[in-house]
Amino acid sequence: MKKGLVKPLLIFFTLIAIGSQAYTQDIHFSQFFETPLLRNPALAGIFNGDVRIQAVYRNQWNSVTVPYQTGSVNGEYKKPVGKGDDFLTLGGQILYDKAGTVALQSTHILPAINYHKSLSAEKNMYLSLGFMGGWVQRSIDRSKITTNSQYDGTGFNPGLASGETFPRNSYSYLDGSVGMSFNTQVGENPDNNIYIGAAYHHFNKATKVSFYGNPNYEMIPKWVGSLGVRMNINEYSFFTLLGDYSKQGTFTETMAGALYSWRLDDIEDPKYILHGGAFLRWKDAIIPVVKLEFKPLSVSVSYDANLSQLKTASNGRGGFELALTYQKHLDRYNTSADAVRCPKF
């Protein structure tokens, strides 16, 4: 195991070191490992099973302002292709976000497809190419907006005009992402796996993404690099290292951490697994995580302890997240449970 760990660990800590700021423009989750399609559409289907459905709810900044609330639901269905060891994953991502006093809302409906090409006849080793794209809609409640123009000599006067002239309360656009990933078994143990991937989000650079309808505004593309390493410690326990680095314009975010896991019953095919660990969003928050699997379901809880410059106003409190996952092999012919090789993590 020590020999197989050297390269994964070097990559993992390099990923941590290259981050510089913890601020991004896109929606993000602290339990990023429960929203794989948001990270990279080429991570769809890299799990042990035929179907996976995940839901995440996030409530943030409740101690500072009107809380930001974000919900995510993603699903994946994996099936063999042809007579070889290749697989195809069909999936989709639905997002809802409501932010701040003016109720800025965002809805995303994004179908996805990922093709896994087998690179080895001896062990699990796959190169995957994935695409995700669809419809995004954003809206705002203009009645909740207050501006400097509405303040007179005595205070706020709602009868005064806001001075804002944006012509619409909502707009929509098409969005697209593409990614690649490499997933392989490490050593002789098929339970030891690593994946590494890169994704390019908003590649179509949608225009007019503003309430003013300005054609000069366009969606800024985002690069995301992802890494995962899972290794057995002994027959009862294993650990998982996970990390993401993203860059969108001048904004960057680095997030990385680890989970230690205990098989609580059958070591060959456990139904109950307990995971515990923590993640760090660089210069922003430390996030403890607890997850319990009771197959085919799992539930995980995390909380952001704020480390940024806002920690004084927030009293160190950030975001609460709850995630639910359903994951299993289907009772059908040619399921991935019967495959000698299959992309998994």
Rank of each mutant, 00 (worst) to 15 (best):
M1L: 10
M1E: 01
V6A: 11
P8Y: 06
L10S: 04
I11K: 12
F12I: 07
F13L: 11
I18A: 07
Q21M: 07
Q25Y: 03
Q31C: 11
E34M: 15
L38G: 10
V56S: 06
Y57V: 13
N59T: 10
Q60A: 11
W61A: 07
S63P: 04
V66R: 02
Y68C: 04
G71L: 10
K78F: 08
G84E: 02
G100S: 08
L104K: 01
I113P: 00
E122A: 15
S128L: 06
G130K: 11
F131A: 11
G133F: 12
G134W: 11
G134N: 09
V136C: 05
D141F: 07
R142D: 01
S149F: 02
Y151T: 13
G159D: 04
S162D: 05
L174S: 13
G176I: 05
S177I: 14
G179P: 05
T184C: 09
G187Y: 03
E188R: 15
P190L: 12
N193L: 12
Y195W: 10
G197N: 09
G197I: 13
A199M: 03
H202I: 12
K208F: 05
K208L: 01
K208N: 02
F211A: 00
Y212I: 02
G213D: 01
P221V: 14
P221S: 13
V224F: 01
R230H: 04
M231T: 02
M231V: 08
N232L: 13
F239R: 11
K247F: 00
G257S: 04
S261G: 10
S261A: 12
L264T: 06
I267V: 11
Y272A: 07
A278F: 06
F279R: 05
W282P: 01
D284V: 15
I286H: 01
V289T: 09
K291F: 10
K291H: 09
F294P: 01
F294K: 01
V299P: 02
A305L: 13
S308E: 03
Q309I: 15
K311T: 09
A313S: 13
A313V: 14
T325I: 13
H329D: 05
N334C: 10
A339F: 10
C342V: 15
C342I: 14
F345E: 02
